[in-house]
Nucleic acid binder design. Structure first.
Lengths: 326, 326
DNA sequence: ATATCAACCGCAAACGTTTGCAATGCAGTT
DNA sequence: AACTGCATTGCAAACGTTTGCGGTTGATAT
């Protein structure tokens, strides 16, 4: 690979390296003639600054790390898409890494971020992450870490989450409003704080209303389908799904049994918004917007970077999107 | 941000920078005592090499660029997920960028890749990309560009695509086998080579069998739904969808009209494999695997990097996955 | 003729690594 | 005693930038 460098431009133009450098960044010290000459030469030779050299010299990477459990997950992708957009607008780059739910890979990814001297890190931890020391160490050396979605259960770190209690509350209330009598509620990984909170909020409200509730935790879509198959015979009149994955499993089960929605059984879910629109009637869902989360996380990052010592603990507000499934 | 550098380690240990450097990379010249001393010191101080300095010095970035039209697209995400995995295994990093179908942003992204001195680029171009010069320029300076999925229509560049003709052929033949008489076929963006090829293959086979065929091009899911709404009254007995997006639109239309699948109307689609499983019966589809594409693209990259001058023009084989929709 | 000033430009150091080469010390050989 | 050879370590240059500071012009004012 043969690249043009400032030195090469300097040799060709007969100007010094510093003059070439300044000319390219429109420094007032440099005359217009020189600037023109240099910029033309640079574009002739397709000059692009070596970003490694720039970062080394300026001691600034203008780079954020993003670590997510999985890249083949629609929710994280919407978060990443919005982070990427914000980053671009602010002249930052992103190094995007997936931990595939493996704490070792997660650790390696953190290492990579350190090596890259990222200015900050957006992270969603794996269910198996027991030791968040490596993250905290980043924070110690003034590299802000903004946790999102799957966050550690402690108060001394930045957290941006989709609504936990709120969204479960909305769902539970909607179920009560519709005078449902027997609920099948399928939650996600019980290790997550968000699951615990939603479970707690959801069941306590149903309890207040004296509504019967079968609860279960699903590890994935297939498991959710199995759970649905097991419990549908007990004739719940509504099923609540905590995630898109669970919804997909549940829908397969109901469709197979030719249950009419919402007449035979009502469905309500918490979702990113994509899956619910695939069905007819569209599934009523409480929206957890990855885009909004991304934007908010980015804002938090920028604000901490600009000196704020405030600990961000934000929640994406829940919006009920009415479909025809309840 | 206060970081440990080789210099700092050297000062503390009383050894020279070069010795510290060599000790850390287990160079045979260094005695075991020294190695132990240095590695312990390094881990005490959380030393991580500054990757910018390393890259600058070694003139190698071990970095690949990835440019996709959109990060909130399941297909590309499966490609990216598999690229990321391969990259990690081979000690490469990825810089992932989205062009949001804007040629200007795409150009800016290419620039970023150049600035980062990527070792290679994986790219899927926007529908509006008329000038692929910037890509070719990369290739000129020995930065391999592997186009995937949406590729330029010229023979002098590496291309990895999902099957175009093949997948359409399989679909058409399956339709013929099932003695369907009237097909509604909805294709994607007519600007893409892949669309043209599939259209051509699909319609010509139907023509051979003397099967009536209504064809249309959809720009997105909503548009596909509209098209379906327009043409379903003409009572086609099977609908062919070229993409997942189109399938989603079509399914909404059929569900709304309470058409039974496959009795009232059969459905067949080309898909990544996720959407078809959401419905009941599962939709029969011709699989276009993003994972396989990613792996194959990565292989091509490695082989060109290791000196092969062969122009890769590969196709991910099509696999028919039978559901119950036809 | 000299001083002043602005406009323009170059020197050189620094960022944190890697690495060819030279230097050092020391044991064993002759 | 001088030499060889080996094991260990250090020197210094280079990668491609940025930037503080100082230098060189030429014009204008005194």
């Amino acid at each position: 690979m043969i690249t043009t460098t400032l030195k090469k431009l300097s040799e060709i133009s007969g100007l010094s390296i510093s003059t070439v450098s300044r000319a390219l960044k429109n420094h007032p010290d440099i005359s217009e003639k020189t600037k023109l000459l240099v910029t033309e030469l640079a574009s002739m030779l397709d000059y692009e600054p070596n970003i490694n050299a720039v970062h080394l010299r300026t001691r600034d990477s203008r780079l954020f790390g993003v670590i997510v459990p999985s890249l083949s997950n629609c929710f994280y992708n919407s978060v990443i898409a919005s982070l990427e957009e914000e980053a671009r607008k602010n002249d930052y780059s992103l190094i995007i890494l997936q931990s595939v739910d493996d704490p070792d890979i997660e650790a390696a990814n953190i290492k990579l971020c350190r090596q890259n001297r990222v200015n900050g890190l957006f992270a969603s931890i794996t269910p198996e992450t027991i030791n968040i020391e490596p993250f905290l160490k980043l924070a110690e050396i003034d590299i802000p870490v903004i946790f999102f979605d799957r966050v550690p259960d402690r108060s001394d770190c930045h957290k941006i989450c989709v609504a936990d209690i709120d969204s479960a509350t909305i769902a539970a209330n909607l179920i009560a409003e519709n005078s449902k009598k027997k609920v099948l509620a399928i939650f996600g990984n019980s290790k997550f704080l968000i699951t615990k909170k939603r479970y707690q909020a959801f069941t306590s409200i149903l309890h207040q209303y004296n509504i019967e509730c079968i609860t279960a935790y699903a590890t994935d879509g297939t498991h959710a389908r199995q759970i649905a198959n097991d419990y549908l015979p007990e004739k719940p009149d509504v099923v609540f799904c905590m995630t898109d994955e669970i919804l997909a499993g549940v829908m397969r089960a109901t469709q197979k049994r030719k249950l009419k929605i919402p007449d035979d059984i009502a469905v309500i879910t918490i979702s990113n918004g994509f899956l619910p629109t695939l069905y007819y009637p569209q599934i009523t869902y409480i929206e957890t917007s990855g885009e909004k989360l991304g934007k908010l996380a980015f804002e938090s990052m920028m604000s901490t970077l600009s000196g704020s010592t405030f600990i961000h603990d934000k929640i994406i507000e829940s919006v009920l999107v009415r479909g025809g499934s309840i």
